[in-house]
């Protein structure tokens, strides 16, 4: 049961980290490899707010989300939009280059040291053989609130409806008069902000260092692919599924095979449902 708690925490963070990647893939048409670096930036900003500015962790999380979200919009305008006409491959390789650039800049600004959030996880509740801390509950609850808010945003607001329409058929959306540029900015902001939040969560659970984005990019991609790159809810579910699979596997096989389990689940999932576990309709991928 303890491993279920671990899996929920890991899965919640993975889901938040992956959904932004999926949103950009769905509306912009390419896989943004720099997404992992946005996560790292969120972790560094969160750490800076807590350790240096001595801000509350919730405020630090909000500031990180906001700043990383804004940076996402700026990068979309300055870097990705100019190459959009060259197609998804050009955007993909641009994102790889941007990832290295962001990595280098963060190394210069924040250094190569490993740091730990000076944040307590608060009271620990012992429930028989299982225990959980207030901080861990808050991470899962925050992830759930974010997912709920995202669902409300996508389904109950006009901008959300435009995003879904653009994701479903960009050309038709354009013809129907949807302001695709505004939609693009909104997607970049939300996706990057979610990466920033995931970065703060990863930093809280583990540590903060410049390699964070590289170490997580593959597993984030795995969650996104398993859920179906075009399905936001599928990606959220697959993030949770992968987190649970990795931590529950520790009960039966050595933990050094944790990553093997994650990618084993991915391969099995794709063999059974090549379109993604949670995609109901066929979709043409670029």
């Amino acid at each position: 049961m303890q491993n279920v708690i671990f899996g929920l925490i890991t899965g919640s963070i993975l889901a938040i980290a992956s959904v932004g990647l999926s949103m950009i893939r769905q509306t912009e048409g390419f896989i943004n490899i720099a997404h992992g670096q946005m996560l790292t930036l969120g972790a560094f900003l969160g750490y800076f707010c807590v350790a240096t500015l001595e801000l509350n962790i919730f405020l630090a999380g909000l500031i990180s989300m906001l700043l990383v979200g804004i940076l996402g919009v700026v990068l979309s305008v300055l870097v990705f939009n100019p190459v959009a006409a060259s197609g998804p491959l050009a955007q993909l390789f641009t994102s790889i280059g941007l990832a290295y650039l962001l990595f280098g800049v963060m190394r210069v600004v924040f250094g190569a040291n490993v740091t730990f959030f000076p944040t307590s996880f608060g009271t620990r509740f012992d429930l028989g053989s299982v225990n959980v801390t207030v901080g861990e509950i808050l991470i899962v609850v925050t992830a759930a609130i974010v997912v709920g808010a995202l669902a409300l945003f996508l389904n109950q607001t006009r901008l959300g409806t435009w995003i879904r329409a653009t994701a479903s058929n960009p050309e038709l959306a354009r013809l129907r008069g949807i302001p695709v540029q505004r939609v693009s900015h909104a997607v970049w902001f939300v996706a990057s902000a979610l990466a920033g939040l995931a970065g703060v969560m990863v930093g809280l659970i583990g540590n903060v260092h410049s390699e964070l984005g590289w170490t997580l990019t593959l597993i984030i991609l795995a969650a996104a692919v398993l859920g179906g790159l075009g399905s936001i809810y599928g990606v959220l579910a697959s993030g949770l599924l992968l987190g649970l699979a990795m931590d529950l596997s520790a009960l039966v096989i050595p933990t050094s095979y944790r990553s093997v389990v994650a990618f084993g689940v991915l391969i099995l999932g794709l063999l059974l449902r090549p379109q993604g576990l949670f995609v109901t309709a066929g979709r043409r991928e670029a």
Binding site: Q2, N3, F6, I9, T10, I13, V202, I205, G206, N207, E211, L212, T215, L216, M246, D247, A250, P254, T255, S256, R258, S259
Partner: peptide
């Protein structure tokens, strides 16, 4: 318990 470095969490390994 042996583990691969570079992970964001080792909760399962520590528990084990």
């Amino acid at each position: 318990v042996r583990f691969d470095p570079g992970q964001s969490s080792y909760q399962a390994q520590v528990d084990q």
